[in-house]
């Protein structure tokens, strides 16, 4: 080493270096440990009965098909509702709003929404949708709760990609005599589609992982529901995460819980990969 470095300095540097590398290594080890443990304990119990049936007391079997379906229903219902609102809000912020104060106020509101913990969403969702609007504990009440929760994500990603649409596109469309809405519909929104897709993927990730907000809104039922049934008031159903919680905490069925955990893990990794690809595409456009 350099002769100008005293022994104390040298040790200090070495210790800091070691700590940095240990911390970084810890992240990788933790991830590998989690993946390994969950898959090893979860995969062996992932039988066909588990994946394709509902829990049956008579046969004494457990099936998670209802939970898989409920998760899909909630994702679809939430996205169908949150997309128009979120994209609309982003369009308003980026294209229509003139008053800086109003923009600031709305952005402050979305930031506040994204900071509220999911258990509070669950409680407020119960108060508003389950009780006040008397939808009962139901998938639709759960989806409405998640609409409020995922709104900030959709607004933010859409807004980011709206900002990348070149000004010339807008001026060109307006110059050719298009009305503002016509211009937005035909020029601005199609160019911002990848931001909207990114927002959707991130929201799906959030919905798949959500449990506290759904416990008291969507309920804990394990019945198989048809698509049309799933949006009816009073039709409760638990998603995969809520089912994992119930099987692990309330019933001590850890093998089932680990199987659900393995499914969730695989799902979140796929979603993560998709989000990364979408973000990469968005960045390429920016440059």
């Amino acid at each position: 080493m350099n002769s100008g470095i005293s022994k104390r300095r040298y040790i200090e540097i070495a210790v800091l270096n070691v700590l940095v590398y240990i911390s970084a290594g810890l992240m990788c080890l933790m991830l590998l440990g989690i993946i390994g443990y969950i898959l090893v304990r979860g995969i062996p119990h992932m039988t066909l009965t588990l994946l394709t049936s509902k829990p049956s007391l008579i046969n004494d079997t457990i099936g998670i098909l209802p939970n898989i379906l409920n998760t899909l229903y909630i994702i679809m219902a939430t996205l169908v509702l949150v997309l128009p609102i979120g994209v609309g809000a982003a369009v308003y912020l980026n294209e229509y709003a003139r008053n800086k104060r109003i923009v600031h106020m709305i952005e402050l509101a979305t930031e506040t929404l994204s900071g509220i913990p999911s258990i509070i969403y669950g409680l407020v969702g119960m108060l508003i949708f389950v009780q006040f609007l008397s939808l009962g504990t139901s998938l639709i009440a759960g989806a409405l709760t998640l609409v409020i929760m995922t709104l900030p994500t959709i607004i933010k990603t859409t807004q980011e990609s709206l900002k990348t649409v070149p000004k010339g596109y807008r001026e060109g469309a307006l110059g050719l005599g298009a009305g503002k809405w016509h211009m937005i519909r035909t020029t601005v929104l199609p160019s911002a589609i990848d931001g909207i897709v990114t927002g959707c993927i991130l929201s799906i990730g959030r919905i798949v992982g959500e449990s506290a907000a759904l416990l008291f809104t969507a309920g804990m039922a394990n019945e198989i529901l048809g698509i049309r049934e799933s949006v009816m008031p009073g039709k409760a159903g638990s998603t995969l995460t809520v089912a994992l919680y119930m099987y692990a905490k309330e019933r001590g069925e850890f093998d089932i819980a680990f199987s659900i955990g393995a499914i969730l893990l695989i799902l979140t990794f796929i979603i993560n990969l998709a989000a990364k690809l979408a973000a990469k595409k968005l960045r390429r456009k920016e440059n």
Partner: peptide
């Protein structure tokens, strides 16, 4: 590699952390 690990860790649902 490390960044991917961190991203994936952030995506793991909280009930899975609870179970572990």
């Amino acid at each position: 590699i490390v960044r991917t690990a961190v991203d994936l860790l952030s995506g793991i649902p909280s009930v899975v952390y609870g179970l572990l």
